[in-house]
């Protein structure tokens, strides 16, 4: 792993939204950070701070007003082919079987259906979905659906995974199982991944580094290296180091949350 060129460089991203009537609202304010190859980075911030906007910019779905997104040193603003994006909702299509849902990205990219289905199928064991290839989404539990959605993301074979609160809609027990499972799969595959989350514990447990954003407009408030040995298991979550990381993040994040809360109550337009 050469540490010379980072996998992703986010450089000075700015984004304002037009509110109409000549008013604008700054949502993203000079965000910069880097992600090393094979690194798992979590981005955490108060709700409504502009995380999702930042994510859409990285994924090439929106253009920034200023700044660059670089992959391997190249500016890729507006390009979508480097990132595989997983939204919070599973968005599995009821008219497709699970294996067909998994193949969606490949088919969209023009791979012949048969080949795409084979690719998709080859991931089913790893994702704990073996035997459910020909099931339909409504036959699966919430955790399985989310794994199927992650499978659909990973199958595309893109360099970087962008996960937007993938477990946010799950109940807390299932969420813990999913984090645990993802941690295991990730240490096997070493994907470069950026995860948006609200969940401090999730961020610490899964990440090599946690980036805390400020209240709106979002900028980087804190970068915290998580120096816990891998592979991790649940016992690590009760260790002193883990709890110290959590405390540090809780303190900063709650300060920002209070600001965001005051903003939302003070601003009539929010």
């Amino acid at each position: 792993m050469s540490a010379s060129v980072p996998k992703i460089e986010i450089v000075g991203l700015d984004k304002e939204f037009d509110l109409g009537g000549g008013e604008t609202r700054r949502v993203v304010d000079d965000i910069s950070f880097t992600v090393e190859p094979g690194e798992f980075v979590s981005v955490i911030g108060p709700s409504g701070c502009g995380k999702s906007t930042m994510f859409n910019i990285i994924a090439g779905l929106e253009e920034p007003d200023l700044g660059e997104v670089r992959v391997d040193g190249q500016n890729v603003v507006g390009q979508r082919e480097h990132f595989a994006y997983m939204p919070q909702k599973d968005l599995l299509f009821p008219w497709r079987t699970i294996v067909e849902n998994g193949a969606l990205g490949l088919e969209v990219q023009g791979m012949p259906k048969k080949k795409a289905l084979e690719r998709s199928k080859s991931f089913f064991r790893t994702f704990g979905l073996a035997g459910y290839e020909d099931s339909h989404p409504y036959e699966l539990s919430g955790g399985m659906r989310q794994r199927a959605a992650l499978l659909r993301t990973v199958v595309q074979g893109r360099e970087i995974l962008l996960l937007d609160e993938p477990f946010g809609a799950l109940d807390s027990l299932t969420r813990i199982e999913m984090q645990n499972w993802l941690q295991g799969v990730w240490s096997e595959y070493s994907w470069t991944a950026v995860l948006i989350t609200h969940d401090i514990r999730e961020a610490v447990y899964l990440s090599d580094r946690v980036i805390v954003l400020t209240a709106r407009p979002a900028s980087v408030r804190l970068e915290l290296e998580i120096d816990l040995p891998r592979p991790r298991d649940l016992s690590v979550t009760t260790s002193h180091e883990f709890i110290a990381y959590e405390e540090q993040l809780i303190e900063v994040l709650h300060e920002e949350s209070r600001k965001a809360f005051a903003q939302q109550n003070g601003a009539p337009r929010s």
Partner: peptide, 27 residues
């Protein structure tokens, strides 16, 4: 937050299916 996690479970092996309430079989 962590107290809820005082897990008695053995950690899952990588790649194994988590045990969230899975249907017994596809059929």
């Amino acid at each position: 937050m962590t107290s809820a996690l005082n897990s008695k479970r053995a950690p899952l092996a990588a790649g194994a299916a988590p045990a969230d309430p899975p249907p017994a079989s596809p059929s």
